[in-house]
Structures are given as structure tokens and as C-alpha cells.
């Protein structure tokens, strides 16, 4: 029992941060939206880290999985509206979101994960852009007109419930997804999966020689990460704002944000995406108030400075320093 606790002790700081964000948002007036945004960044980082951090592969098309999750929920709600399934529709939407992002990641992973380094990154940009043009060009799911399903959501849940969903419960669901992603991360890290991913991240050929089926583990990490992205899309982009437009959900800007969050905090660490999400989210928010219009100009060099000071990310840097002390087991 003690050993198991010790093994998973590193999850506690993550849970504490999430709890603090949640309670701050709940109890301070006007803070909920900021806390929800921070939670979204943390969740996005946590989900992306399972692939980017643990395998070392950079996916520039990551947002496509968030987008597919959004579409999964949107398509389900529009096609099941009027069937009287009520709340079950939302569950069906989540299943569809998982299916969309999971299947896309399986298809992309089975092909693109044969490429390494920059070639993989380029291929994934192509997937993201290609998907967007496919939807727009073939008029799939409303084409470039997108899907607006505010009315259907109101029909299914009732007006009050769907507005409570948009302003509160969707954010709580994001928090739950963030916690699930953190739990998945530590379970992976502590199992053979984590060791296989570390080995292939450091040296893929040597990992093969050790008996690791690198393709299988890469696809596993890719799909896990993509499924969490899909859940996030279905929640934060579909349930919270009941519309979806291709240029918005396939915007590469979100992928870049996710990469920055993971790298800032510490790729491959458990606490890293949380630290990265907080630094990025708070930094962006504060600068947009203090220096409106100039926030990106100031923020970019700040990010560069942090990355130069902490090449392994903030949490990576702290772990290098304090990893061997009594605090070490809480920093992962």
C-alpha cells in the first residue's frame, strides 16, 4: 500500500493545482472564465504531452484531433435532436468524438509514424490542412458553413440546462478530462508502456533491439493523446460553444499553443503541462490587460527566455535540481 502510494505520489501536486484553480474560480466572482481557460490550457497540454512529451515526436496537426472531437459531438447532436434521447445524446456524442479522433489518429499514425523527425512534423501539418479542405471542398458536415447546433442543444437539454452547460458544467468536464489525462500519464509512466516510450524517444533503433515493438507503442501513445484531444474538443469547443466552423477548429495556432505549453512546462514530465498551461495562460491574460495589442510582442521573447533558462522545461529544470531530495517523489 505504502509502495503504491509512493509510486503515484507525483500525481498529488497536479491534483492540488487543479483543485486550487477550481476553488478559486468557484469562490471569487468574475474569476470563473479565467480559471476555465487555464484549465483548458492545462488539459490540452496534459493530453498532448502523452504523445509529444513521451515519444519526442512533434505533431503539428494535433488540433485536427480536437477538431474531429468537436465534429463528433456536433454531428451527433444535430442528427439525434428530436429523437427524445435527452442526456444520452451527449454520451453518444462523446462516443462519436472518441471514434472520430481515435480512428483518424489510427489512420494517420499507421502511416505517418513511419516517418521520423521533421518529416513526421510536415506530414502532420498536411493532415490538418488536408482535412480542413476536405470538409470545405466536399461540403461534408455543412462544409465551410459549419454546423450551428444551439437550437438542437436547447431542444435536447432545455434552455436552462444548456446555458448552465455552456457557462459552468462544460468547464467542470474539462477539469475531469484534465484529471483523467494526468492519471493516464502517470499510469503509463509507471508501467512498461512508459519505459518503452522513454526508450524509443531516446533511441528508436536501440529500443527495437531491446525487443520493443516501437510502432505499436508509438501508435498507442498517439491514439491515447488524440482521444483526449477529441474529448476536449467535444467539451470545450462543442458543448461550451454550440457551433463549429472548419477554419476555427483546424487553426494551427492551437497546435502551436499546445506545443509551447508542453515545452515550457517540461516535455515528458507529469507536472510540466500544468506548469506550462499556467505560465502560458496567466502570461497571455496579464499581458493582454497590461499591454493590450502588444501582448504577443512581449510574450514571445519572454517564452524564449524561459526556454533558454530551462531547456528541459520549468518542471524538468526543477527536477534536475531537486529530484534527488525528499521532494523528488512529488516531482515527475
Amino acid at each position: 500500500m505504502m509502495r503504491t502510494l509512493d509510486k503515484y505520489a507525483a500525481i498529488f501536486p497536479v491534483l492540488v493545482v487543479y483543485a486550487v484553480l477550481f476553488l478559486l474560480g468557484l469562490n471569487m466572482s468574475g474569476m470563473w472564465q479565467l480559471m476555465a481557460t487555464l484549465l483548458f490550457y492545462c488539459a490540452l497540454g496534459q493530453a498532448f504531452n502523452i504523445f509529444l512529451g513521451m515519444t519526442g515526436y512533434v505533431d503539428f496537426g494535433y488540433v485536427a484531433f480536437v477538431g474531429m472531437g468537436t465534429y463528433g459531438m456536433a454531428v451527433t447532436i444535430t442528427s439525434l435532436a428530436g429523437t427524445g434521447l435527452g442526456g444520452l445524446t451527449i454520451i453518444a456524442g462523446y462516443i462519436m468524438a472518441l471514434a472520430f479522433s481515435g480512428l483518424l489518429s489510427l489512420a494517420v499514425g499507421a502511416v505517418a509514424l513511419r516517418l521520423r523527425g521533421a518529416y513526421f512534423a510536415i506530414a502532420t501539418i498536411g493532415v490538418n490542412e488536408g482535412l480542413r479542405f476536405l470538409i470545405e471542398g466536399t461540403n461534408l458536415w455543412g462544409g465551410s458553413g459549419g454546423i450551428i447546433f444551439t437550437r438542437q442543444l436547447n431542444d435536447i437539454l432545455g434552455k436552462d440546462a444548456s446555458s448552465a452547460l455552456a457557462t459552468f458544467w462544460a468547464d467542470v468536464l474539462v477539469l475531469i478530462i484534465a484529471v483523467l489525462a494526468a492519471i493516464t500519464t502517470i499510469v503509463y509512466m509507471r508501467s512498461k508502456i512508459g519505459y518503452a516510450l522513454t526508450a524509443l524517444r531516446e533511441d528508436e533503433d536501440a529500443a527495437k533491439v531491446m525487443g520493443i515493438n516501437v510502432t505499436m507503442f508509438k501508435i498507442l501513445a498517439f491514439m491515447t493523446s488524440a482521444c483526449f484531444a477529441g474529448l476536449l474538443g467535444a467539451t470545450a469547443w462543442a458543448l461550451k460553444t454550440p457551433y463549429v466552423f472548419p477554419p476555427e477548429v483546424f487553426e494551427i495556432h492551437y497546435t502551436i499553443e499546445a506545443i509551447i505549453i508542453v515545452m515550457l512546462g517540461g516535455a515528458g514530465t507529469l507536472l510540466g503541462p500544468v506548469a506550462g498551461g499556467l505560465i502560458y495562460g496567466i502570461g497571455k491574460y496579464v499581458l493582454s490587460i497590461v499591454l493590450p495589442g502588444f501582448q504577443l510582442l512581449i510574450f514571445a521573447p519572454l517564452i524564449i527566455i524561459i526556454i533558454v533558462a530551462f531547456p528541459d522545461g520549468v518542471v524538468g529544470g526543477i527536477r534536475n535540481k531537486f529530484g534527488h531530495t525528499a521532494l523528488g517523489r512529488f516531482i515527475l
Binding site: Y195, T198, R201, E202, D203, M210, G211, I212
Partner: peptide
Amino acid sequence: RPFASATVRENVAVGAMFGSRG
């Protein structure tokens, strides 16, 4: 070709985890 960021023990353990007795 060590797995550079892992400890010596973790490196060697990877062999046991995935080799013929994996």
C-alpha cells in the same frame, strides 16, 4: 546507445522488461 535520460537501473531494466523474459 544508452537511453540517455533514464537512469542506469532503468536502462538495464528495459532489457528485462522486453527481452526474452519480457
